[in-house]
């Protein structure tokens, strides 16, 4: 089983690769090559930093988004997006101006704006992951979050898990063979590694 871990210059790639290996992955290809993505059995999109920088980095690689769309949307191989990699699933982000996302899960990525000024931004640290009934892959527990923007999906049915940081925060989104986690499984000790192990077994 080949897993394509997308390298588009914006990710915390090696942490995710290390965690996937610890979770049992044997063939992790760190790649930006559309031909490798086109044959992968799993696709993982990491991401840290800003939505805009990540979206631009992804779009700058010729044929990569098309290959991801063919493999994930048409061939339906399991996909996992992490943090900004999850946010990129949205229609658009509003960090540093409006930027188009992949649009695989309709919604918008907006700044976290808790009414209580004593609540610190970024949302940084371990917080609850409360799973929606019937959600695949994601389990309840405590995950490590690190973000200032959050995914606001158009359709509630796409919310797989929630948390809160002064305001309700979507902790995971998904549909069909696609899952995105706002928290960092690669930095969430056993809770995170277990999720990655399930992802490796997941048939979508």
């Amino acid at each position: 089983m080949t897993l394509a871990l997308i390298d588009y210059g914006a990710g915390n790639l090696h942490s995710v690769a290390n965690a996937l290996k610890a979770a049992g992955a044997t063939d992790v290809a760190i790649t930006a090559d559309p031909d490798v993505v086109a044959k992968a059995d799993r696709v993982v999109l990491p991401g840290v930093g800003s939505f805009k920088a990540c979206a631009e980095g992804l779009n700058a690689i010729d044929g990569l988004v098309q290959a991801m769309e063919a493999r994930v949307l048409t061939d339906k191989v399991p996909f996992l997006g992490i943090c900004v990699g999850m946010q990129l699933l949205a229609t658009r982000g509003v960090e540093h101006g409006i930027t188009q996302g992949l649009g695989w899960i309709p919604g918008e990525v907006r700044l976290l704006e808790p009414a209580d000024a004593s609540i610190k931004i970024p949302h940084m640290g371990w917080n609850d992951v409360i799973v929606a009934p019937g959600a695949p892959l994601v389990a309840g527990g405590e995950g490590y979050f690190l973000h200032s923007y959050h995914f606001v999906p158009e359709d509630e049915a796409h919310v797989l898990a929630r948390t809160a940081h002064g305001v309700p925060v979507v902790a995971a989104v998904g549909r069909d063979n696609i899952v995105g986690a706002q928290f960092h499984p690669e930095k969430s000790q056993k809770f995170g590694l277990d999720l990655l192990t399930r992802f490796l077994d997941w048939q979508g």
């Binding site: 371990w126 609850d128 405590e142 809160a164 940081h165």
Partner: peptide, 8 residues
Amino acid sequence: MSVRIRVI
């Protein structure tokens, strides 16, 4: 539900 105090 709130973010945990981190012990580092």
